[in-house]
Protein backbone atom coordinates (compact mmCIF):
# COMPACT_ATOMS: atom_id res chain seq x y z
CA UNK A 1 0.00 0.00 0.00
CA UNK A 2 1.72 3.15 -1.10
CA UNK A 3 1.12 6.65 0.15
CA UNK A 4 -0.81 9.15 -1.87
CA UNK A 5 -1.97 12.72 -1.75
CA UNK A 6 -4.95 13.73 -3.78
CA UNK A 7 -6.21 17.28 -3.94
CA UNK A 8 -9.35 18.00 -5.94
CA UNK A 9 -10.25 21.52 -6.84
CA UNK A 10 -9.31 22.82 -3.41
CA UNK A 11 -9.57 26.44 -2.38
CA UNK A 12 -8.21 27.95 0.79
CA UNK A 13 -9.80 31.19 1.75
CA UNK A 14 -8.49 33.54 4.38
CA UNK A 15 -10.81 36.12 5.72
CA UNK A 16 -9.07 39.16 6.97
CA UNK A 17 -11.25 40.78 9.55
CA UNK A 18 -10.84 44.46 10.03
CA UNK A 19 -11.69 43.55 13.56
CA UNK A 20 -11.35 39.81 14.22
CA UNK A 21 -13.72 39.77 17.12
CA UNK A 22 -15.69 42.93 17.74
CA UNK A 23 -15.96 44.01 21.33
CA UNK A 24 -19.33 44.48 22.93
CA UNK A 25 -18.98 48.25 22.87
CA UNK A 26 -18.39 48.29 19.15
CA UNK A 27 -21.25 45.89 18.57
CA UNK A 28 -23.52 48.28 20.41
CA UNK A 29 -22.23 51.24 18.42
CA UNK A 30 -22.64 49.36 15.18
CA UNK A 31 -26.17 48.54 16.17
CA UNK A 32 -26.99 52.23 16.44
CA UNK A 33 -25.04 53.40 13.44
CA UNK A 34 -26.41 50.47 11.39
CA UNK A 35 -23.02 49.69 10.11
CA UNK A 36 -22.15 46.08 9.64
CA UNK A 37 -19.27 44.88 11.76
CA UNK A 38 -18.89 41.76 9.69
CA UNK A 39 -16.93 43.46 6.98
CA UNK A 40 -14.12 41.26 5.80
CA UNK A 41 -11.53 41.11 3.11
CA UNK A 42 -11.41 37.77 1.47
CA UNK A 43 -8.17 36.46 0.23
CA UNK A 44 -7.83 33.24 -1.68
CA UNK A 45 -4.46 31.75 -0.82
CA UNK A 46 -5.07 28.70 -2.99
CA UNK A 47 -7.45 28.74 -5.90
CA UNK A 48 -9.11 25.64 -7.34
CA UNK A 49 -5.98 23.64 -6.95
CA UNK A 50 -5.88 20.05 -8.15
CA UNK A 51 -2.88 17.88 -7.58
CA UNK A 52 -2.14 14.19 -7.27
CA UNK A 53 1.09 12.96 -5.74
CA UNK A 54 1.91 9.26 -5.82
CA UNK A 55 4.31 7.20 -3.75
CA UNK A 56 7.94 7.61 -4.77
CA UNK A 57 7.58 11.19 -5.89
CA UNK A 58 9.75 13.94 -4.44
CA UNK A 59 7.88 17.10 -5.21
CA UNK A 60 9.47 20.49 -4.97
CA UNK A 61 7.26 23.55 -4.71
CA UNK A 62 8.64 26.86 -5.87
CA UNK A 63 7.13 30.30 -6.16
CA UNK A 64 7.35 33.83 -4.91
CA UNK A 65 6.57 34.88 -1.37
CA UNK A 66 2.86 34.66 -0.80
CA UNK A 67 2.33 32.28 -3.71
CA UNK A 68 0.69 29.83 -1.30
CA UNK A 69 3.48 27.33 -0.82
CA UNK A 70 3.31 27.06 2.96
CA UNK A 71 -0.47 27.27 2.85
CA UNK A 72 -0.48 24.28 0.51
CA UNK A 73 1.62 22.28 2.99
CA UNK A 74 -0.60 23.39 5.87
CA UNK A 75 -3.68 22.38 3.92
CA UNK A 76 -2.25 18.90 3.36
CA UNK A 77 -1.47 18.60 7.08
CA UNK A 78 -4.99 19.70 7.97
CA UNK A 79 -4.16 22.98 9.70
CA UNK A 80 -6.09 24.99 7.14
CA UNK A 81 -9.16 23.06 6.02
CA UNK A 82 -10.09 23.63 2.38
CA UNK A 83 -12.97 26.02 1.97
CA UNK A 84 -14.06 24.20 -1.18
CA UNK A 85 -12.89 20.97 -2.69
CA UNK A 86 -11.35 17.84 -1.21
CA UNK A 87 -8.03 16.90 0.21
CA UNK A 88 -7.36 13.21 0.56
CA UNK A 89 -4.18 12.08 2.24
CA UNK A 90 -3.37 8.38 2.35
CA UNK A 91 -0.57 7.74 4.80
CA UNK A 92 0.87 9.26 7.95
CA UNK A 93 1.89 12.85 7.42
CA UNK A 94 4.99 14.23 9.10
CA UNK A 95 5.23 17.97 8.75
CA UNK A 96 8.54 19.71 9.24
CA UNK A 97 7.03 23.11 8.80
CA UNK A 98 7.83 25.05 11.90
CA UNK A 99 9.86 22.76 14.04
CA UNK A 100 10.11 23.53 17.70
CA UNK A 101 6.53 24.67 18.12
CA UNK A 102 5.46 24.18 21.70
CA UNK A 103 8.84 24.49 23.34
CA UNK A 104 8.59 25.61 26.93
CA UNK A 105 11.40 28.05 27.62
CA UNK A 106 11.37 27.40 31.36
CA UNK A 107 12.01 23.71 30.95
CA UNK A 108 15.18 21.84 30.30
CA UNK A 109 16.15 20.49 26.92
CA UNK A 110 15.39 16.99 28.09
CA UNK A 111 11.90 17.90 29.27
CA UNK A 112 11.29 19.64 25.99
CA UNK A 113 12.19 16.48 24.12
CA UNK A 114 9.22 14.82 25.79
CA UNK A 115 6.98 17.85 25.45
CA UNK A 116 7.71 18.24 21.77
CA UNK A 117 7.78 14.56 20.98
CA UNK A 118 4.44 13.79 22.57
CA UNK A 119 2.98 16.80 20.78
CA UNK A 120 3.94 15.04 17.56
CA UNK A 121 1.83 12.11 18.80
CA UNK A 122 4.74 9.93 19.87
CA UNK A 123 4.30 7.90 23.01
CA UNK A 124 6.34 8.44 26.14
CA UNK A 125 7.78 4.98 25.63
CA UNK A 126 8.94 5.87 22.12
CA UNK A 127 10.51 9.08 23.35
CA UNK A 128 12.37 7.25 26.09
CA UNK A 129 13.88 5.00 23.48
CA UNK A 130 14.85 7.92 21.29
CA UNK A 131 15.96 10.35 23.96
CA UNK A 132 19.59 9.27 23.84
CA UNK A 133 19.78 9.46 20.05
CA UNK A 134 18.20 12.90 20.04
CA UNK A 135 20.61 14.28 22.62
CA UNK A 136 23.54 12.74 20.79
CA UNK A 137 22.50 14.11 17.42
CA UNK A 138 21.79 17.58 18.74
CA UNK A 139 25.32 17.68 20.19
CA UNK A 140 24.04 19.51 23.26
CA UNK A 141 25.84 17.22 25.67
CA UNK A 142 25.56 18.32 29.28
CA UNK A 143 23.49 21.39 28.33
CA UNK A 144 20.51 19.11 27.79
CA UNK A 145 19.46 19.59 31.42
CA UNK A 146 19.71 23.39 31.26
CA UNK A 147 16.45 25.33 30.82
CA UNK A 148 16.24 26.18 27.16
CA UNK A 149 15.78 29.87 27.84
CA UNK A 150 19.56 29.93 28.28
CA UNK A 151 20.13 28.30 24.89
CA UNK A 152 21.41 30.21 21.92
CA UNK A 153 19.11 30.24 18.92
CA UNK A 154 21.46 27.85 17.18
CA UNK A 155 21.25 25.37 20.04
CA UNK A 156 17.50 25.68 20.10
CA UNK A 157 17.37 25.03 16.39
CA UNK A 158 19.57 21.99 16.70
CA UNK A 159 17.39 20.54 19.44
CA UNK A 160 14.20 21.22 17.50
CA UNK A 161 15.63 19.69 14.35
CA UNK A 162 16.87 16.62 16.21
CA UNK A 163 13.46 15.96 17.73
CA UNK A 164 11.49 16.65 14.58
CA UNK A 165 13.58 14.40 12.37
CA UNK A 166 13.61 11.46 14.79
CA UNK A 167 10.78 9.83 12.90
CA UNK A 168 9.80 7.15 10.44
CA UNK A 169 7.98 9.22 7.86
CA UNK A 170 5.54 8.09 5.22
CA UNK A 171 4.65 11.46 3.82
CA UNK A 172 7.18 14.13 4.63
CA UNK A 173 6.37 17.80 4.22
CA UNK A 174 9.35 20.10 4.51
CA UNK A 175 9.38 23.88 4.59
CA UNK A 176 12.87 25.39 4.43
CA UNK A 177 14.56 23.88 7.40
CA UNK A 178 18.08 23.43 6.16
CA UNK A 179 19.58 26.49 7.72
CA UNK A 180 20.00 25.59 11.38
CA UNK A 181 23.06 25.77 13.58
CA UNK A 182 26.69 26.07 12.68
CA UNK A 183 28.43 24.71 9.59
CA UNK A 184 29.15 21.41 11.25
CA UNK A 185 25.54 20.89 12.19
CA UNK A 186 24.28 22.01 8.79
CA UNK A 187 26.25 19.19 7.18
CA UNK A 188 24.94 16.68 9.68
CA UNK A 189 21.42 18.02 9.23
CA UNK A 190 21.61 17.79 5.46
CA UNK A 191 22.73 14.18 5.77
CA UNK A 192 19.87 13.44 8.13
CA UNK A 193 17.39 15.08 5.78
CA UNK A 194 18.68 13.02 2.88
CA UNK A 195 18.23 9.78 4.78
CA UNK A 196 14.74 10.93 5.80
CA UNK A 197 13.93 11.63 2.17
CA UNK A 198 15.16 8.18 1.21
CA UNK A 199 12.94 6.51 3.77
CA UNK A 200 9.77 8.46 3.02
CA UNK A 201 7.36 7.43 0.34
CA UNK A 202 6.40 10.97 -0.55
CA UNK A 203 8.37 14.14 0.02
CA UNK A 204 6.98 17.60 -0.57
CA UNK A 205 9.67 20.21 -0.27
CA UNK A 206 9.16 23.96 -0.24
CA UNK A 207 12.35 25.85 -0.84
CA UNK A 208 13.80 28.97 -2.35
CA UNK A 209 17.10 27.24 -2.77
CA UNK A 210 17.03 25.99 -6.36
CA UNK A 211 20.09 23.82 -5.74
CA UNK A 212 18.16 21.88 -3.12
CA UNK A 213 15.17 21.60 -5.39
CA UNK A 214 17.22 20.34 -8.27
CA UNK A 215 19.17 17.94 -6.11
CA UNK A 216 16.35 16.36 -4.12
CA UNK A 217 13.25 16.48 -6.29
CA UNK A 218 12.06 14.51 -9.26
CA UNK A 219 9.04 16.70 -9.89
CA UNK A 220 8.57 20.40 -9.44
CA UNK A 221 5.43 22.50 -9.16
CA UNK A 222 5.48 26.21 -9.82
CA UNK A 223 2.96 28.07 -7.71
CA UNK A 224 1.90 31.60 -8.48
CA UNK A 225 -0.90 33.57 -6.82
CA UNK A 226 -2.32 30.37 -5.38
CA UNK A 227 -2.47 28.51 -8.65
CA UNK A 228 -0.32 25.83 -10.21
CA UNK A 229 1.15 27.45 -13.28
CA UNK A 230 3.47 24.65 -14.26
CA UNK A 231 4.31 21.10 -13.27
CA UNK A 232 7.14 18.95 -14.57
CA UNK A 233 10.77 17.87 -14.29
CA UNK A 234 13.01 20.01 -12.03
CA UNK A 235 15.46 21.55 -14.51
CA UNK A 236 12.70 22.70 -16.85
CA UNK A 237 10.56 24.08 -14.07
CA UNK A 238 13.38 26.02 -12.44
CA UNK A 239 14.11 27.51 -15.82
CA UNK A 240 10.45 28.37 -16.26
CA UNK A 241 10.35 29.93 -12.81
CA UNK A 242 13.35 32.12 -13.48
CA UNK A 243 12.20 33.32 -16.89
CA UNK A 244 8.46 33.66 -16.32
CA UNK A 245 7.94 34.43 -12.67
CA UNK A 246 10.98 35.46 -10.67
CA UNK A 247 12.48 37.33 -13.58
CA UNK A 248 9.47 39.53 -14.19
CA UNK A 249 8.61 41.87 -11.36
CA UNK A 250 11.00 44.17 -9.59
CA UNK A 251 10.36 42.25 -6.38
CA UNK A 252 12.30 39.29 -7.71
CA UNK A 253 15.64 40.65 -6.65
CA UNK A 254 14.54 41.09 -3.04
CA UNK A 255 13.13 37.59 -2.98
CA UNK A 256 16.07 35.73 -1.50
CA UNK A 257 16.81 38.34 1.11
CA UNK A 258 13.31 38.35 2.50
CA UNK A 259 13.16 37.14 6.12
CA UNK A 260 9.96 35.24 5.45
CA UNK A 261 11.41 31.98 4.33
CA UNK A 262 14.62 31.78 6.25
CA UNK A 263 13.41 32.58 9.72
CA UNK A 264 11.10 29.63 10.11
CA UNK A 265 13.58 27.20 11.53
CA UNK A 266 12.61 27.68 15.17
CA UNK A 267 9.40 28.92 16.56
CA UNK A 268 9.48 29.07 20.31
CA UNK A 269 6.55 30.42 22.32
CA UNK A 270 8.25 33.77 22.66
CA UNK A 271 8.61 34.14 18.91
CA UNK A 272 5.04 33.10 18.22
CA UNK A 273 3.92 36.69 17.95
CA UNK A 274 6.64 37.69 15.56
CA UNK A 275 5.95 34.72 13.35
CA UNK A 276 2.32 35.70 13.30
CA UNK A 277 3.26 39.20 12.31
CA UNK A 278 5.40 37.83 9.56
CA UNK A 279 2.60 35.79 8.14
CA UNK A 280 0.35 38.80 8.29
CA UNK A 281 3.05 40.69 6.48
CA UNK A 282 3.12 37.98 3.85
CA UNK A 283 -0.58 38.34 3.31
CA UNK A 284 -0.51 42.08 2.97
CA UNK A 285 2.47 41.88 0.68
CA UNK A 286 0.66 39.46 -1.54
CA UNK A 287 -2.40 41.63 -1.45
CA UNK A 288 -0.42 44.49 -2.86
CA UNK A 289 1.22 42.35 -5.48
Amino acid sequence: MSAEIQIDDATVRFRIYRNPSPALKEMAINLFTRRSSGEVLEYYALKNLSLTIHGGERVGIIGLNGAGKTTLLKMIVGIYPAFRGHVHVGGRVTPLIEVGTGFDLEMSGRQNIYLNGTLLAHSRQEMMEREKQIIEFSGLGEHIDTPIKYYSSGMLGRLAFSIATMIEPEILLVDEIFSTGDALFVDKAAERMLSLFDRSQIVVLVSHNMNHIEEFCNRVIVLHHGEIVNDGPPAEMIDFYHTHIAGRGSNASTEDRSPMNTDFSVASPSTAVSVQEQSRFSMTSSLSE
Binding site: G102, L119, L120, P269, V275
Partner: peptide
Protein backbone atom coordinates in the same frame (compact mmCIF):
# COMPACT_ATOMS: atom_id res chain seq x y z
CA UNK B 1 -3.55 27.89 21.67
CA UNK B 2 -3.44 29.92 18.47
CA UNK B 3 0.27 29.43 17.93
CA UNK B 4 -0.15 25.68 18.23
CA UNK B 5 -3.22 25.47 16.04
CA UNK B 6 -1.59 27.42 13.24
CA UNK B 7 1.63 25.44 13.16
CA UNK B 8 0.84 21.89 14.12
CA UNK B 9 -2.01 19.57 13.44
CA UNK B 10 -3.41 18.89 16.88
Amino acid sequence: AESYLKKLFI
